[in-house]
């Protein structure tokens, strides 16, 4: 039996993190209805495993991890991983000049392969560091950095891209 203070701690977590978890869930499944289900499931599981949360500071990454696992469990069969070697520049080509239309950006995010979108959203929404993302995704920090770089290059053909290639060639 848990004490009232634990319950109110749980409530605080729900209030604090359900919006960003919802958004993260949305970008995972790109479906508003499923996203809410995922958030519900995440907190249900979090509550079941409440005694495993030792460190309050870890609560946020713990919740994200539960949500990731829950999503993987539900979509395991449908999940198609795209290997890191794929040329991303051809997949998404949206932004023009420096005007970033929000809808275009959303479409571009939707079109991004899951293996790139996921670390990007963990960083943008969750504010996690590359090391933290690496821990959550169980890949190396270098791999996370590569994916994040490629995700951004894919979302926007950076003006710096060509300059970068020239510099690289030098």
């Amino acid at each position: 039996m848990l004490f009232d203070s634990e319950k109110s701690k749980f409530e605080t977590l729900v209030k604090a993190y359900s919006p960003e978890l919802y958004r993260y869930a949305y970008w995972q499944c790109r479906d508003r209805f499923l996203a809410e289900d995922l958030v519900q499931e995440t907190f249900a599981r979090a509550w079941q495993a409440w005694d495993k949360l030792r460190d309050d500071k870890a609560a946020k990454s713990w919740l994200y991890t539960i949500l990731r696992n829950e999503h993987a469990r539900l979509f395991e069969r449908k999940r198609v991983e795209i290997d890191d070697g794929q040329e991303l520049n051809d997949i998404v080509d949206t932004a023009s000049s420096s005007v970033y239309d929000q809808l275009e950006m959303r479409d571009a995010l939707k079109a991004l392969p899951a293996s790139y979108r996921e670390p990007l959203l963990l960083q943008v929404l969750g504010g996690f560091s590359c090391a933290e993302i690496a821990g959550m995704m169980e890949i190396s920090e270098g791999a996370v950095m590569t994916r994040l770089t490629r995700a951004r290059l894919a979302l926007r053909k950076m003006p710096g891209l060509n300059a970068g290639r020239r510099m690289k060639a030098r």
Binding site: S18, Y22, Y26, Y100, Q102, M158
Partner: peptide, 25 residues
């Protein structure tokens, strides 16, 4: 350039959250 891009990316990522989500949870 990246700074402006990040602002746009952040805005796009913040899809609207349904009302009373926390209450329903």
């Amino acid at each position: 350039e990246v700074e402006r891009f990040e602002a746009g990316l952040h805005d796009a990522a913040l899809v609207p959250v349904p009302d009373a989500l926390a209450a329903r949870v």
